[in-house]
């Protein structure tokens, strides 16, 4: 059992490392890189929606905070990318703490609406603070990342392959962190709050504190995803906080299976590829998205990941 597991991990590892060598189309490579971005974005969203059980509609704002932070740091203050990237995440985390402090005390429904209001406020600021963000035009010409590695010198991230390996590292870090978090005492406490808040409190769990932590960690990874995106497409603009992104995240997380890592990864990859190959107008695509969302909620609220877990559980029970 142990060895077969190790072999699977090695095989998957080789496959992931080898992708740039057998994917020849640069278009497909581009979508694969975007899949990586959405995996981070959706997994970080799932911390809040799936594990915390709160419906936040403010996640794109943290993505934007991360993007603008690292772009402005790199372009205006000449901060190296390796430093700007974590600062982007940390600033998103700090903003989440500031927003969460009042918002996480509210009822579930109020929380959803207040976080949505937060997204709209941030968006209005980015559009109107022209001297800093260049307004609705956005910031073009964002430099490609240069990473200084000790003893190896500066590594310039330029080709799709370079970007692929960078996002692969970020995705692995995100997955591992979330996996460890969910299977740690912190994850156990989060789960207990979602399942029964009064009982969790009775057992000594400070529900508010854990909500703040989960909300802030989610924002941190959204900030990383935002930063990477801006430096990948070499552009940052307010459209990254479009309502469209909330819809897409919700579909990735809900259809993929909220509260499951594998499900959300599947959801994120599927819904990065599907719209690219659906050659239709964005509006028509959104109609289909809305339809998929409603159908998923009515017929399969546990998502693909939940279904997979169910099958595994049943098989385990059957084989004893």
């Amino acid at each position: 059992m142990r060895i077969s597991r190790l072999l699977v991990i090695i095989a998957v590892g080789i496959f992931l490392l080898g992708i740039p060598y057998f994917v020849t189309s640069s278009y497909v490579m581009h979508i694969i890189i975007f899949s990586g971005i959405y995996i981070i974005f959706a997994l970080s969203y799932d911390i809040v929606v799936g594990y915390l059980g709160m419906l936040s509609l403010g996640h794109p704002a943290f993505y934007g905070v991360g993007g603008y932070t690292s772009v402005l740091l790199v372009m205006k203050l000449d901060v190296p990318y390796v430093i700007a990237l974590p600062i982007a995440g940390i600033l998103a985390l700090i903003v989440a703490l500031i927003v969460g402090f009042p918002a996480l005390r509210l009822s579930y429904h109020s929380f959803a609406i207040v976080t949505l209001a937060f997204t709209l406020i941030m968006r209005a600021v980015w559009i109107n603070w022209v001297s800093l963000t260049n307004g609705p035009m956005g910031i073009p010409g964002v430099p490609r990342p240069t990473i200084d590695i000790p003893f190896l010198g500066a590594v310039h991230i330029e080709t799709l392959t370079d970007y692929y390996y960078l996002i692969l590292i970020l995705v692995i870090i995100t997955c591992l962190f979330i996996y460890f978090m969910i299977h740690s005492r912190v994850g156990r406490a989060l789960l207990s709050i979602r399942e029964n808040e009064v009982l969790a409190e009775t057992l000594g769990v400070n529900a508010f504190k854990y909500r703040m932590i989960a909300f802030a960690i989610g924002a941190f990874f959204a900030g990383l995803a935002g930063s990477f995106t801006a430096h990948y497409i070499t552009f940052m603009g307010p459209e990254f906080t479009d309502f469209y992104y909330i819809t897409m995240l919700l579909i990735m997380v809900i259809l993929g299976g909220s509260g499951t890592i594998h499900g959300v990864i599947i959801g994120a990859i599927a819904f990065t590829f599907i719209p690219e190959y659906l050659r239709i107008t964005p509006e028509f695509r959104d109609v289909i998205y809305g339809f998929v969302l409603v159908m998923t909620i009515i017929f399969m609220p546990e998502g693909i990941g939940g279904k997979i877990n169910e099958i595994i559980y049943k098989r385990r029970v059957r084989t004893g």
Binding site: S192, L199, A200
Partner: peptide, 23 residues
């Protein structure tokens, strides 16, 4: 707060059973 009191060493059970069924 409830959790602060719990941490001081006061435990309780409920009239209607409260456990975490999915754990």
């Amino acid at each position: 707060k409830t959790h602060e009191i719990a941490l001081k060493g006061l435990s309780r059970t409920f009239q209607i059973i409260r456990i975490f069924p999915k754990m």
